[in-house]
């Protein structure tokens, strides 16, 4: 999903940067507010950022004979709502643009829009929908993680098709072509990311239950020790 440096025409690069900027600024405020009001949330915020940091560094082979990387943005979106990931995801992209020549500064806005904004929001929507339909936490996490991953790559395909419409078949033809590159490759990765998310949340449910209750991810359970005494 990293559009390479210089590979969006200037008008598109500026447009996506302007579109992403308010989300990132809002996300930065959301992170500061969360840390100020709930210092104990810093640990889980670190976990959410770290998860995206690891997963977006690992390129995995897929059934299509090409490789791609997951995004890991679903964890933070589910725990802290999507705005937080607008900042954390953009920080990861900036690191990769500056140190790894992966993505770029001119394409940072477009890449942030797909990985740090659309992905987390779609993942969060899928998570909330699963919960609203009566699904448990873990199925919700699976759906949220997997769809955050897929939605990111679908967004990249749309961005590239808008910038490079096909000479004959226009936007639609180009979209089909870029989806051919990104979408099928990403399906097994999205499933794998969903499973990893379930693994992580199983650990969190055991070890960070008070935090998950405060964040509204788990229902508040009456404290047992009171009765034990």
């Amino acid at each position: 999903m990293h559009i390479a440096e210089g590979f969006l025409p200037p008008a598109h690069a500026i447009g996506w940067t302007l579109a992403a900027a308010p989300f990132v600024v809002h996300g930065a405020r959301a992170v500061v507010k969360e840390v100020r009001e709930h210092p104990e949330a810093t640990l889980l915020l670190g976990a959410a950022g770290a998860f995206t940091f690891v997963l977006s560094a690992i390129k995995l082979p897929s059934i299509t004979g090409s490789s791609s990387h997951p995004t890991g943005t679903g964890v933070g979106a589910i725990l802290f709502r999507p705005p937080v990931m607008a900042l954390l995801g953009t920080v990861v992209l900036l690191f990769q643009a500056l140190l790894l020549a992966h993505g770029g500064l001119t394409t940072l806005g477009a890449n942030a829009f797909s990985l740090a904004i659309v992905g987390p929001w779609v993942g969060y929507g899928a998570y909330r929908l699963t919960r609203a339909l009566g699904g448990d936490l873990l199925p919700g996490v699976f759906a949220g993680m997997a769809l955050a991953d897929l939605a990111t790559y679908l967004t990249t395909s749309v961005q590239l098709a808008l910038a490079f419409p096909d000479a004959g078949s226009g936007f639609t033809g180009a979209l089909v072509k870029f989806l051919g590159v990104f979408a099928v490759t990403q399906i097994p990765l999205a499933i794998g990311e969903g499973l990893l998310g379930v693994l992580l949340f199983r650990v969190l449910v055991t070890n960070a239950r008070p935090d998950l209750e405060r964040l509204g991810v788990l229902p508040v359970r009456p404290a047992e020790p009171e009765e034990a005494r």
């Binding site: 999903m1 390479a4 090409s66 490789s67 072509k177 590159v181």
Partner: peptide, 13 residues
Amino acid sequence: SAYVGSDTQAVTA
């Protein structure tokens, strides 16, 4: 298969 990265394939496209 060569397992080329999908980002690289997009540039090629």
